[in-house]
C-alpha cells in the first residue's frame, strides 16, 4: 500500500494510507434458499469504510437485510469463525476466485474490480444455503486416508521420538492445512457429488449412503498431502501402507490430472504438488510391492 503524504500541520501519516476508494460498495451475491433449489443473483449496497474485508461487508449486509432497491430480504447466510485465516471456514468464490473471505480485503478487491464485489458459494460442494456449502466430503477424505498417528493410547508413555529440524520443517507446512477446500474448488478432476435425502430416511442410512458416494469420488490434493504428512512421521510411518492402499483405491491419486491449480490457490501456500509428486512415486512403488508380495 502506498504511503500517504503528510498534510496539514503535522497530521500523522498512516503507513497503510487509506484513500477512500468509493462511497458505496455494491455486492452481487449468488443466493440459494436451500439444497436443490434454483439460485438467483441479488444486489446489496453498503457504505464504504476503510479497512474492510468481505466478512465485515457481509456483517453490514446482515444488519441491513435490504437489497439495493430497498426490498427487505433475509440476511445472506455464510460460514465463518476465526476471521484470521486459520480455521478454514469462510471459503467462497470472490470476484471469480476461490479464497477466504476474512483475508479478502475490500480495497484490494475494488482495485481488481472497481465498483462491485461478486460473491458466490463454492461450486464443488452442495449448497446448504446462499454461501454455505456442505464440505462433509472433504472431512470424509481424512477418514479414508487414516490421517492420524496410530498411537497405542493416551497414557503417559514418555517422550515422543526425536526428530530432526529438517524433518519438522518439511512436515510443518503440510500440517497447516486448514481443510478450507480451495484446492478442491480449483481442481478440474474434483467434481460435485450431491445426493438428496430420501423421505423418511434415517440419519444413519443417509450418512452411510453419502459416505459410500463420497468414497468413490476423487479425494483431492489436501487428502493426498495429508497422506504424505503422516507417512513422513516416525510413528505415522508404521501404517504407511494402509494409507497408500487408500491412495491407490478408486478416487485416489490416479485421478489427479496434474493441472496444478491446487497449489496456486492454496491460501497457506502448502506445497501440494510436491506432495502429489511424492505420493505418486510412493503409490507406484507400493503397487509393485503389493503385486510381487502376493
Amino acid at each position: 500500500m502506498a504511503h500517504q503524504s503528510g498534510h496539514g500541520h503535522g497530521h500523522a501519516s498512516v503507513a497503510t494510507g487509506h484513500r477512500k476508494l468509493a462511497d458505496w460498495i455494491d455486492v452481487r451475491v449468488l443466493r440459494q434458499d436451500g439444497p436443490g433449489q434454483a439460485s438467483y443473483w441479488e444486489r446489496h449496497r453498503i457504505p464504504y469504510e476503510p479497512e474492510m474485508n468481505v466478512i465485515s461487508v457481509l456483517q453490514r449486509m446482515a444488519a441491513q437485510a435490504k437489497t439495493v432497491d430497498g426490498r427487505a430480504v433475509a440476511p445472506v447466510a455464510w460460514e465463518c469463525n476465526c476471521l484470521e485465516e486459520v480455521c478454514g471456514a469462510c471459503t467462497m468464490v470472490i470476484n471469480g476466485r476461490v479464497r477466504q473471505s476474512c483475508s479478502a480485503l475490500v480495497d484490494r478487491l475494488l482495485r481488481e474490480n472497481p465498483g462491485e464485489i461478486e460473491l458466490q458459494p463454492m461450486g464443488k460442494f452442495p449448497v446448504v444455503r446462499d454461501l454455505v456449502v456442505d464440505r462433509g466430503r472433504l472431512f470424509r477424505a481424512l477418514e479414508r486416508m487414516k490421517a492420524w498417528i496410530p498411537v497405542d493410547g493416551y497414557f503417559d508413555m514418555g517422550q515422543g521420538l526425536r526428530q530432526s529440524q529438517s524433518a519438522q520443517e518439511e512436515m510443518y507446512p503440510l500440517s497447516e492445512c486448514m481443510s478450507c477446500g480451495c484446492c478442491l474448488e480449483a481442481c478440474p478432476q474434483y467434481t460435485k457429488i450431491e445426493l438428496a435425502r430420501a423421505e423418511g430416511e434415517t440419519d444413519e442410512a443417509w450418512q452411510a449412503r453419502v459416505r459410500e458416494a463420497y468414497d468413490l469420488g476423487f479425494a483431492g490434493a489436501h487428502a493426498i498431502s495429508q497422506v504424505m504428512l503422516f507417512n513422513a512421521h516416525p510413528t505415522g510411518r508404521n501404517n504407511a501402507s494402509e494409507r497408500l492402499d487408500a491412495l491407490t483405491d478408486p478416487g485416489g491419486i490416479q485421478d489427479c490430472g496434474n493441472a496444478q491449480n491446487c497449489v496456486a490457490v492454496c491460501p497457506k501456500r502448502i506445497p501440494l504438488t510436491t506432495s502429489i509428486g511424492r505420493a505418486g512415486r510412493a503409490a507406484t512403488l507400493h503397487s509393485f510391492r503389493s503385486f510381487f508380495d502376493r
Binding site: Q159, Q165, S175, T235
Partner: peptide, 13 residues
C-alpha cells in the same frame, strides 16, 4: 510429551 507422540509438529533443536 503426549501431544508430541500424537504428531504435533513442534519446532526442534
Amino acid at each position: 510429551e503426549l501431544m508430541d507422540r500424537l504428531g504435533v509438529t513442534f519446532n526442534r533443536t
